[in-house]
Design a protein around this nucleic acid. Sequence first.
DNA 1: ATTGACGTTTACGTAAACGTAAAGTATATT
DNA 2: AATATACTTTACGTTTACGTAAACGTCAAT
Lengths: 144, 144
Amino acid sequence: MNARAEIDKEGRISFSITELAEEFGVTSRTIRFYEDKGLVNPAREGTTRIYSRKDRGRLKIILRGRRLGFSLQDIKKMLDMYSPESGGTDQLTFTLQKCEEQLEKLITQRADINEAIAELEDGISQLKGHLASGGADGCKKTIA
Amino acid sequence: MNARAEIDKEGRISFSITELAEEFGVTSRTIRFYEDKGLVNPAREGTTRIYSRKDRGRLKIILRGRRLGFSLQDIKKMLDMYSPESGGTDQLTFTLQKCEEQLEKLITQRADINEAIAELEDGISQLKGHLASGGADGCKKTIA
DNA sequence: ATTGACGTTTACGTAAACGTAAAGTATATT
DNA sequence: AATATACTTTACGTTTACGTAAACGTCAAT
């Protein structure tokens, strides 16, 4: 049994690469790839990667970004935005602007989703109608 | 001047590939590529592609799908779902189920977006706080 | 008749996001 | 000591979604 695994059973404070991979449903290759691209930067114990809670948080954000269809490059920018480690006033201002741009994007995307959802719901209720009214046709609505 | 362009100035009933490309902000190459993949199937006048309103509708859906991060393959399935041309009852039932699955996906995705938006708004207001309170630090909040 | 705008096919090129082997290190259990 | 397990790096392979170039057809205006 591993020392680290012993110490922090619950409320973990550090994680191995495979732990995170399993938790998030990706391969370790993927996580290392993200590191290659500068999206995470775990500590090292010798050569082995040690992921902090913060690293884990970044991973979570990365994967959500991916689900939303953003490129890793965009996601990197987003992450950099979140942590303006060097807080010069103009850096902050810059970050703020980037954040607001990103926010716009997401809002647009939400609108897209809502449209898609509405159409799907519409289609579903029509399908149900067709099934209820029995027959092979009904109103022949396709796509507009 | 082209005959078609003359006839249907407004309320267009058919479109050329470049018209649609410009309208949707993609290249004609992209649209032909979608055809290659079976996502659209415009009529032909000789060898030239003629896009109907329906084709245009499909294109709109395709591009929205893309913005949402779906693969063309997924989008094809979605489109096939919308138009169950051969309406056998079990075909309809199948389509219905697929639609409902898709709906689930989108709802999940909307949740993702809402999370991301919330975090961003939070981050933005914190940034504004830092900027207002002047200094180089403040509360050192980074990512969790 | 030629220029130009628009269309076509065929086919090779490319960037992003990993997959997948190869080959080695480190620790732990049998 | 040997096997198993987890980790590492290096590097080439793969898929998706187009870009881009070549080489040609078609129509309308100059």
